[in-house]
Design a protein around this nucleic acid. Structure first.
Lengths: 228, 228
DNA sequence: CGACGCATTGATTGTAATCAAAATTAGTGG
DNA sequence: CCACTAATTTTGATTACAATCAATGCGTCG
C-alpha cells in the first residue's frame, strides 16, 4: 500500500468525478483531505463489518463490491469504474467488501471530513447525488442482465455491459477490451458456475459473436448476436 | 387518476422521505410544487422512453421499476417502498417503467421545479443523496438474492427481503405480510418461471418455513430455514 | 523443471424450463 | 346471490440445460 497527497491537476477523472463540481478553491480544500493510493489486484480497500470511516473516488482501474456468502463463495454485487465513488456515507458499519480487480488508483478520504465537506459545499452534495443516481441506474441495468433465465443471455449481456463500460463513447461498446474479472468472479456476479461461464464463452466464440485474445481479452465481432 | 395539492401535515412518511430534511418554510415551498395522486394497481406512473419531466415520492403502497424485454416479457429491476423516491433527475429520457403494484399514494413534482429546489435547498440535496444511497444499498442486496444459483435460495431470500420491507423495525422481518407482487412479477424479478416460483413456495410451506394465507399472504414461521 | 493456480473440456446428475392440464380465485352480469 | 367466464395459480410429465464431479490443458513463478 502506497499513500500520498493528491495531485488533482493531472487527475484523469478530474472533470467526471464528484469533485469536478467544485471550483478551484473548494477542490483545493478537498484535495488536502484526501490521500492518493495505489491498490494491487486483489487488494482490499474496505472490508464488510469493519468500521465504516472512509470513502474514496476511483481514479483508474476497477473495483468490485461484494460479499462472501455463508458457504464461503463470493458474490459480486457491483463493479466500480473510474470516477466512481465508494463508501457508505450513511451506514455505521460497511455492508460489503470493496476490492481492487486490477491495479487501481483511488483518492481516499476520511468519511467524517468528507461528510463535513458535503455539508459545506452544496455543489459537492449535488454532484454526489448525480453519481449515486448513475450508480443506481447501473445497478438496475445489471440486475436486468443477472435476472435473465438462460446462461447464454447472462454472459452475452455481461460482455456487452463490460464493452460499454470500457468504451469512451457513451452509446457504443468498445470493440475490444480486457475483462477485469476472473472466471470465478464472472460466475459469482451472474449467478452461474465457472464451468458454465467458460462453456458459454467458447460457444459465443464458435458462433462468431466474439473472439478471445488470451484469457481475458474480448473482441466483440457481432454485437447484434449478443442481444440488445 | 386523481390529483390534488399536498397535505404534508398528515403525511405518513413525513419524517422519512427526502422532504423531511426541510424546515417548515422550505417544506411549504416544496409542497406548493407537488401534487398528491392516487394510483390504482397496475397504473403506470412513468413510462420508459417518454420525456422524463417528473419525479415523485411514494407515500403509501408499492411501486415497481421495470422494463419489458424485446420478447415481451417483463423484468422487474427494483421495488419502491413508502418514502422512496422515483424519477431520473439526470437523464433526458426515462430508462424504465414505474408502475403501481398496489393502490399507492404519491407526491408528484415537475422535475424542473424539483431540481431547482435541490439547487436552492442544500438540505434537500443531502437528503436525496441519503435516499439514493439507501436505494443503492437495497439494489445491491437484491442483486445478492437474484444472483443465487438455486431457485429455492432465490425465493427464500426474496421472502425474507419482503418481510423486512414490510416491517416497521429495521432489523427483524414482519412475521406476516402480503406480497405486493403476482407470481408472474416475482418470477420476472428473480429470473425464474411462474411455475418454479409456485413450486418453491409450496415446497417452503411443506417444509414448515412459511405458511400461506390466500394467494399473497405470507407468514414467516421459521425464518432461519429461509437462510440469512 | 516441477508445482501451483486458473481455465477449459468431458461425463453425469439434478434441477428448472417447457408443455399441458386441472384447480382456484376474481370479475361480470343475470 | 349465484352462475358463468376469464385470469391466475397450482400441479403434473417431460425435456433441456446448468450444476456437479472429474480430468486435462495452459500459464506463471519459484
Amino acid at each position: 500500500m502506497t499513500s500520498s497527497p493528491l495531485a488533482c491537476a493531472a487527475c484523469p477523472v478530474r472533470d467526471r468525478a464528484a469533485c469536478s463540481a467544485l471550483d478551484e478553491g473548494e477542490r483545493g480544500d478537498l484535495a488536502r483531505l484526501g490521500r492518493h493510493r495505489v491498490l494491487s489486484p486483489g487488494e482490499v480497500l474496505f472490508a464488510a463489518d469493519e468500521a465504516n470511516d472512509r470513502c474514496a473516488t476511483l481514479v483508474s482501474g476497477a473495483l468490485k463490491i461484494g460479499t462472501v456468502e455463508s458457504d464461503g463463495s463470493e458474490r459480486i454485487l457491483s463493479l466500480i469504474h473510474p470516477a466512481g465513488f465508494v463508501g457508505e456515507l450513511f451506514a455505521p458499519v460497511a455492508h460489503f467488501d470493496v476490492t481492487a480487480l486490477t491495479r487501481s488508483e483511488v483518492c481516499v478520504f476520511s468519511r467524517r471530513e468528507y461528510e463535513a465537506a458535503v455539508e459545506r459545499y452544496p455543489a459537492l452534495a449535488r454532484a454526489l447525488l448525480r453519481r449515486s443516481s448513475e450508480d443506481l441506474l447501473g445497478a438496475r441495468s445489471l440486475m436486468g442482465i443477472v435476472a435473465r433465465t438462460s446462461a447464454r443471455d447472462k454472459v452475452a449481456g455481461f460482455l456487452l455491459a463490460m464493452g460499454e463500460a470500457a468504451s469512451d463513447s457513451p452509446c457504443h461498446p468498445a470493440a475490444t477490451f480486457e475483462l477485469p474479472l476472473s472466471r470465478s468472479e464472472v460466475a459469482g456476479l451472474l449467478g452461474l458456475t465457472i464451468e458454465t461461464v467458460s462453456r458459454q464463452l467458447t460457444a459465443l466464440e464458435r458462433s462468431g459473436a466474439i473472439r478471445r485474445n488470451g484469457l481475458r481479452g474480448i473482441e466483440l465481432v457481432d454485437a447484434a448476436q449478443l442481444g440488445n
